[in-house]
Design a protein around this nucleic acid. Sequence first.
DNA 1: CAGTGGTCTAGACCACCAA
DNA 2: TGGTGGTCTAGACCACTGC
Lengths: 257, 257
Amino acid sequence: MATSIPSAPTATSAETASGTPAFSPLYQQIKDLILQSLEAGEWKPGEAIPSEMELAARFRVSQGTVRKAIDELAAENLVARRQGKGTFVSTHAEQHVRYRFLRLVPDSGDEGPAQRSILDCRRVRASAEVARALALRTGDAVVQVRRVLSFGGVPAILEDMWLPGSTFKGLGIERLAAHQGPTYALFEVEFGVRMVRAEEKIRAVATDAQQAQLLGVAPGAPLLSVERLSYTYNDVPMELRRGLYRTDTHHYRNALS
Amino acid sequence: MATSIPSAPTATSAETASGTPAFSPLYQQIKDLILQSLEAGEWKPGEAIPSEMELAARFRVSQGTVRKAIDELAAENLVARRQGKGTFVSTHAEQHVRYRFLRLVPDSGDEGPAQRSILDCRRVRASAEVARALALRTGDAVVQVRRVLSFGGVPAILEDMWLPGSTFKGLGIERLAAHQGPTYALFEVEFGVRMVRAEEKIRAVATDAQQAQLLGVAPGAPLLSVERLSYTYNDVPMELRRGLYRTDTHHYRNALS
DNA sequence: CAGTGGTCTAGACCACCAA
DNA sequence: TGGTGGTCTAGACCACTGC
């Protein structure tokens, strides 16, 4: 199916062996091809992809078809268009989308970025639960990170992260501490991993003694438990995160539509 | 600005009095016009809007321009396209989008719809806080509803709702109790109010004695506090809701992208 | 000014649905 | 079979950016 586009492209195509029609419009095929280049790293985060005209010539389709393919990629936040300049591969390092995945906002006012304090970072063997989430085998190497995020000096988030050891070779406490800006931007630059989407499961829990001490709240105080599974291209899970959020001065913001 | 489209439509238009260019593409103007008809109730939820060709003729533009306008409306879930049939005004009564705004899902398995139990429904005067959220004046009439939602006989959600009294005339406990399906579907049919989007603020809180009793949990148990402000067309706030969610067997699901 | 994305059009054809 | 939305094209022109 995913072979190269024929010189005379056909919209109606791709008869599967199993007999189902499996119609896929041309622009979808083009989108998939662009996606493959994105995954392969042909263009790095922050870089411009070729112009619509160039891509149209390359794939032997009209500019309008490329446009529709890019429209969908832009809708999924994989690329961003800038009129007069070009289309750019999305990155977590951009100013206006920084901390795109962080939904905790102050109840009033506006505060700067979080201060990070790395408590721990070590390579461990994946528990059954972590392995299942990250599509690994139990016992595989994973990097485990624990940190506290503070706003204006007040601790607000206690977070544990698990990352596949094979991909995040050499991730240590120094690198994490030295880095400025979003952690996901560090992952892009240092490990070539771009987080594309994530799913969160949110619960209310009571603090235990250790957590309470780290966050500076009373033991038993209610906290928001946020379990996040982040995915790279192609729906590959790449990070499991368990966060405890203080919600006495902040709240988790969500838009429904 | 919002006058009718001239017989020879211009893409570059709408010079504002203040001097700013304020360029608005044709398809945006068409989208606004369709939106106005939607707000005015020219087509009711569940009904089909005119075909793309008809709208193109009505607004004196090409089908492609109407298509792009409808594309955006569909992306915002205001209408839904069905190939071969037409484009339909979205409704909360549709099977596949039912409980679109309810993000609480069971940790495992799948359960049927919630059982509702209305505890209270009465007309009261808006507190300063409720008035501010609903863009009313303090003391204006509002309908206040308290109810419990249960899954499989187990109470899971305790909810208070506030609705503008002027719009929700005659809303009583009988009507709420008699109705089947999503509450927002009732609002569409009985009061002509369609909820289009909502914003939620989520916190972890400790249960007080009364809440604990209604939900069947221990006093002080951590619960998810979900404050929702729902909007109709044109960003008009129409409902304030404060929910307490049990998250021992369920969780609040969220997708980030 | 040239190059990029953005808009608009008109027409052809395809896939889906209902009568 | 006719109507609806869905795809694709080709070309013209507009708006924004940077040289």
